[in-house]
Design a protein around this nucleic acid. Structure first.
Length: 488
RNA sequence: GCCCCCAUCGUCUAGUGGCCUAGGACGUGGCCCUCUCAAGGCCAAAACCGGGAUUCGAAUUCCCGUGGGGGCACCA
């Protein structure tokens, strides 16, 4: 059996983290077991469709590196891969269920309760919300009555006829055996009055027709899966392997929501996270390799991923750990790769310096690409700072000593012929020894004068090399003036 | 309300009856390294939700609680 998995997003918005994780796991399962990964667009809700989000799906998958084998723009013989283009297929299948009695026409108006139910406010009336559809009066309509209504042009939906008694059991690869009493299931709508199928119907028809072997989706579908099983049975189709995935939630247990400010995949990329780091991180949300490895490339994941190692409990999304993984991925980059990425975050004025050398200093210190601008800010201009910054106990440094050092060091630097890190360090080390200073006592004032900030990528000599002789001496001179002004 | 699912350090997790005085990672604290800051190295604090049962022996099995999440749409 060739494994076939699918990612079936609806184009209703951005690519949120939970969706991406589902896509990732479906992709990994297909790759790991030598199968096919299919993209299917579930655009059966005409009201909620957001045209731009289709582009977001494509770009999101591309950014994450999740290449699909079949999809709307990549025919694999099971198309079309967009549900709105498969309407006649759903209609024909619904007809078939009508004939066998597994479904029936319902002429009821849309429930008035819908209006209240969808309100985010107070749950005014909790009782009876799900009643109308379950004990649907239209189940009892005679053929004659149905015909009359059809002829009268009354709109109708097609509903699934759920058995009144008994229970439905299914097997999930993650959650095990699950049984639900049929009375808990409602006569769900299969085909809407606008002729479009509901997700509940389309996913079953398409998953079967597209040969999906492993149905991978969020855990929120667990309780409606029995209804899908009943559908498969009504058609006489084999039941696919179900793989329900645990949810990704926030620290307070609620689910991730764009409206509440939780970042989408694209947002995270804009926040300075590498797509491969995000992928690495979410792979670890609800799955673990079984050993201590935590850093993975997508290619490595396709080698070690296993459905058997998927967890049941929902996982909390933590930016802290993602940030660490991001830092690790950044450090794993070649210096050229990092430089290419970092350059985009350097302010324009930085080009007067050797930005490649700056990148060399930055790589090990960058956790998020967006941190870069403020970290290199001082190169273009020393910010206003207080002379207290020259006070540094660990370096045995005070403003007074700093003034002394800066003055003494100026001629040495001035006469230095080779302006590079090693020469600078050598000369200053010599100076420190000659005057009985700790090396830090010499370096701290210089670093401070050159940057005006308490922490810099690289030390005094590294900064001096990049700044160049003229600028270095100018900044030291400015430091001297500042100190003299305050101390005298 | 009814139904389903889940439950190990703050967080992600390892753990499938004895290897557990519960392992790793992030984060936190300390130390080392060190021309600042990082990175790196070392160390530390930190968890089996509660109660029963099964067993010679339970984090691991079962039951009951409790807590959390999900579902109950002509949304997916």
């Amino acid at each position: 059996m060739t494994v076939r998995t699918r990612f079936a997003p609806s184009p209703t918005g951005y690519m949120h983290i939970g969706n991406l994780r589902t896509a990732l796991f479906a992709y990994l399962a297909a790759r790991r077991y030598g199968g096919k990964f299919i993209l299917r667009i579930e655009d059966t809700d005409q009201e909620r469709n957001v045209p731009e989000s289709l582009a977001a799906i494509y770009s999101g998958l591309a950014l994450a590196g999740l290449e699909y084998d079949e999809g709307p723009d990549k025919d694999g013989g099971y198309g079309p891969y967009t549900q709105s283009k498969r309407l006649s297929i759903y209609q024909a299948h619904a007809e078939q269920l009508l004939v066998t009695g597994a479904a029936f026409r319902c002429f009821c108006k849309k429930e008035a309760t819908n209006l209240e139910d969808s309100e985010p406010g107070e749950p005014a009336d909790a009782d009876g919300a799900a009643e109308p559809s379950r004990r649907d009066p239209c189940r009892l309509l005679t053929n004659g009555e149905i015909e009359t209504k059809i002829n009268a042009g009354e709109p109708f939906v097609i509903r699934q006829r759920i058995p009144d008694s008994g229970s439905t059991t299914f097997e999930d690869r993650v959650y095990g055996t699950i049984t639900i009493d049929n009375v808990q299931l409602d006569d769900q709508v299969l085909l809407k009055s606008d002729g479009f199928p509901t997700y509940n119907f389309a996913n079953v028809v398409d998953d079967h027709l597209m040969g999906i072997t492993h149905v991978m989706r969020g855990q929120e579908y667990l309780s409606s899966t029995p209804k899908y099983n009943l559908l498969y049975e009504a058609f006489g189709w084999p039941i696919p392997i179900y793989v329900h995935l645990p949810l990704i939630v926030k620290l307070d247990g609620s689910k991730l929501s764009k409206r509440l400010g939780d970042p989408s995949f694209e947002d995270l990329v804009m926040m300075g996270y590498l797509p491969e780091a995000i992928v690495n991180y979410i792979a670890l949300l609800g799955w673990s390799p079984g050993d201590d490895q935590e850093l993975f490339s997508l290619a490595e994941l396709t080698q070690v991923f296993s459905i058997d190692r998927i967890n049941k409990a929902s996982a909390i999304f933590s930016l802290e750990k993602l940030t660490w993984i991001n830092g690790e991925h950044i450090r794993a980059l070649s210096i050229d790769e990092f430089h290419t990425l970092a350059e985009k975050y350097y302010p324009d004025e930085l080009v007067k310096y050797n930005t490649f050398k700056i990148s060399e200093l930055m790589q090990v210190r960058t956790e998020k690409l967006t941190d870069i601008p403020q970290m290199v800010d001082f190169f273009t201009a020393v910010p206003e700072y207080d002379v207290d910054m020259y006070q540094h106990d660990k370096s045995k440094c005070t403003p007074e000593i700093s003034l002394e050092v800066l003055k003494a060091v100026t001629p040495i630097l001035n006469e230095l012929s080779d302006w590079d890190n090693d020469s600078l360090y050598g000369a200053l080390q010599l100076f420190a020894k000659a005057h009985g200073y700790k090396i830090g006592t010499v370096m701290w004032p210089i670093r401070t004068a050159l940057s005006g900030v308490p922490a810099t990528p690289g030390g005094a000599t590294a900064l001096a090399e990049i700044l160049g002789k003229a600028e270095t001496l100018a900044r030291i001179d400015a430091g001297i003036k500042k100190l003299e002004h305050v101390l005298n």
